[in-house]
Write a protein that binds this DNA or RNA. Structure first.
Lengths: 127, 127
DNA sequence: CTCTTGTTTCGACATACGTCTATGTTGACG
DNA sequence: CGTCAACATAGACGTATGTCGAAACAAGAG
């Protein structure tokens, strides 16, 4: 089940991040990046990702996600599939329920790509 | 001309950034964020943004953007319009030519939203 | 095995999106 | 004023996307 992500971002260990804002992107990089941004370009998927990522234990059951939306269960499942194919989340069946969790690599990659040179990290407000 | 952005992100000065990955997003925030991510969800627009942002002087003429793509001039103009409506760039006519530049606020906002708590800034690789 | 519950897959459909050609608009220059 | 070049807008067309209901699949309980 967790075998079908498109491995959309090279997850390169080569230091840090391809500069989006510091050098022109070549077409191939742009295509790969656009897939992930497109996955984030829907309010339902953003909220799903947010709910998954902000879960204390790191995992959340579909049955806890669905009631938060005014949409049919198949539609939620569809959006979760797109997030999974974008490499943003993964899931595992555990008995009757399916649990989803965040794949931090892809999100970190995006954050890096969008960080302008010289811009400090977005440190959360808890010193 | 530079008057029609949707002012899509509140550009709030309230410290830093709404946590996308630390707390569930409410619907309104999700809708606003999704507009910007959707604008980034196209390879042509990503490359356009990248070319604009990485320009040394901070500005670039449309006549320098168009030839880099295998698309018609109106198509490029259309994509630039979407980036502008998303609050990512702005433009100004200067004689015959139109110049575009990056609006750093929106990009910074996205980077902040995608940065996980505890994740350091993406420092560029030039020590 | 059968029944029930949770989840995904399958078609179908309306809408949105990316692209084009054709046409406007704006400014520079004779 | 007329003409040309640089961009923008308008309309059209094919494809992709978001949504649903129905059906299939998986796993536990009788």
């Amino acid at each position: 089940m967790s075998k079908q992500e498109l491995v959309v971002l090279g997850q390169d260990e080569s230091g840090c991040c391809p500069p989006l804002l510091a050098a022109p992107l070549d077409e191939e990089q742009a295509v790969e990046l656009a897939k992930v941004f497109k996955a984030l370009g829907d309010p339902v998927r953003l909220r799903l990702l947010s709910m998954i990522a902000s879960r204390e234990g790191g995992e959340i059951c579909v049955c806890d996600l669905t009631p938060a939306f005014d949409l049919s269960q198949p539609t939620i499942s569809h959006h979760l599939k797109l997030l999974r194919q974008a490499g943003l989340i993964d899931c595992e069946r555990r008995g009757t329920w399916v649990y989803y969790w965040l794949l931090p690599g892809t999100v970190d990659k995006l954050a890096g790509v969008l960080t302008r040179p010289g811009q400090p990290a977005a440190s959360e407000g808890s010193p």
